[in-house]
Every structure is written in structure tokens, then in C-alpha cells.
């Protein structure tokens, strides 16, 4: 049982020198960013298709969210088999492919929810005033679903950052952070991995605090916010 006097920042100080962990963190952040960008973009396209479709809506919806229902181990293994068979080497790209499959259904649902703000009559009115389909999208649809896009981006980023099973099967030379942490835990852990977890936790809390402060400030300045009070 450690005592209070055992508290120290030694392992935090040792963190930057642990090449394996820092490399894994960089890899994870890079993969999470690319996954988030791609998942948000593709989900936006999928949601637009859903908005335009009428009769085949349900079929399209189920198709897009289907990967959500496949267990991660099976998906990772299956993808790995498919990639090996077709001669594709495991790399960051294969991990991103696996993570896209994992994150896209969630991003799609989040964006679809935000489409509730887009009434068809707004688009008709814009067309009436001379807007082409593209201008309707840029001027009306995009601003209205922006909160959904931001949420979808954050959501897919976090889903990818924390993902273990698919990355375990699909990673190439450089493993992602969860895989590396898991490995270290099994082979007699050095307390550096706890320092890593602690750092990630603190940074996340700081990010959330900054974001809420930013939104509160904006609400205070906007006329809608003034009316709320």
C-alpha cells in the first residue's frame, strides 16, 4: 500500500523520454484526426443522401449503421484477413479503415439528428429566391447542421483514439496508444503508463473547460442569449 509521502512527479517527468509511449500517442492522434475528418465528411454525404431519399430511406439507414452491430474482434479479424489476402500491408491506413467502419455509424446518427433543424420549406424558399442546389446547401443546410458536424467530429475522434480491438489486428509497424498500453500492462507495468493516463485525463478536462467557457461567453454576447435571461 503506497503512502502519501510516496507522491511524486517522477513518472510524469520520465514520460517525454519514453519513446515507445510518445510514438504511440503521436500515431493515435494522427489516426484519430484523419478518421474524424473522413468519418464526418462521409457521414455528411450519407446524411444528405438520406435527406433526399424517400422510399428507400430505411434501407439506406440500416446499411450505413450496420457495421455498428458487428463485434470489434470479428471486424478486426475479418478486415485483417481481407487485407492480407488482397496483399495490402498493415499500416496506419489499415487502422484508419477499421476505425472509419467503427466511427462512421455514430457520426452518421449524430449528423442525421441535426438535420431535424433543416426544414424542406427553407430550401424551397431559398430556391424561390434564386439559390441553386449548391447555394442552398452552403447557405441554408450547412449553417443549420453545423453543431451536428462538430459533435460528429469530436465523437469519431474519441472513438478512434480509444479503440483497441481493431487496431490490435490492423496496426502495422507502429502500434496505437491503447495497444501499447495494453502490452505494457501485461509485461509488468512501469508507472509511466499511469502518468500517461493522468496526462490525457487532465488535458481532456482542460479542453472541455475551455470549450464551455467559450460557449458561455458567446451566449452572453449574442442577442438570443440576451433574450434567454
Amino acid at each position: 500500500m503506497p503512502r502519501l509521502s510516496d507522491l511524486s512527479l517522477t513518472w510524469y517527468a520520465a514520460l517525454p523520454n519514453d519513446r515507445a509511449l510518445v510514438g504511440a500517442l503521436q500515431q493515435s492522434l494522427m489516426i484519430a484526426t484523419i478518421t474524424a475528418v473522413l468519418a464526418t465528411g462521409m457521414s455528411l454525404l450519407a446524411a444528405l443522401a438520406y435527406f433526399e431519399l424517400r422510399a428507400q430511406r430505411t434501407a439506406w439507414f440500416l446499411t450505413v449503421i450496420l457495421p455498428m452491430f458487428v463485434p470489434g474482434v470479428i471486424q478486426g479479424l475479418a478486415l485483417s484477413a481481407v487485407f492480407t489476402r488482397s496483399g495490402i500491408k498493415a499500416s496506419s491506413l489499415t487502422v484508419i479503415a477499421g476505425h472509419l467502419l467503427w466511427a462512421m455509424p455514430f457520426a452518421f446518427i449524430v449528423i442525421l439528428t441535426s438535420f431535424a433543424a433543416v426544414r424542406r420549406s427553407y430550401l424551397t424558399a431559398a430556391a424561390d429566391l434564386g439559390a441553386t442546389r449548391w447555394r442552398q446547401f452552403v447557405d441554408i443546410t450547412l449553417p443549420l447542421i453545423r453543431p451536428g458536424l462538430i459533435s460528429a467530429f469530436i465523437f469519431s475522434f474519441l472513438l478512434s483514439l480509444n479503440e483497441f480491438t481493431r487496431a490490435f489486428y490492423l496496426a502495422g509497424r507502429q502500434n496505437t496508444l491503447p495497444v501499447v498500453l495494453f502490452g505494457k500492462m501485461n509485461s509488468g507495468a512501469s508507472p509511466v503508463i499511469y502518468a500517461m493516463s493522468g496526462t490525457i485525463f487532465l488535458v481532456s478536462v482542460a479542453c472541455v473547460a475551455l470549450a464551455s467557457m467559450h460557449f458561455m461567453l458567446r451566449l452572453k454576447l449574442s442577442p438570443a442569449g440576451r433574450a434567454l435571461r
Binding site: A117, R119, S121, Y122, T124, A125, A126, D128, I140, L144
Partner: peptide
């Protein structure tokens, strides 16, 4: 329009 359709 009947539905007003003002851009919110």
C-alpha cells in the same frame, strides 16, 4: 409561403 420558412 404558408409555412413562412424564414431562415432561422
Amino acid at each position: 409561403f404558408q409555412s413562412l420558412a424564414l431562415f432561422p
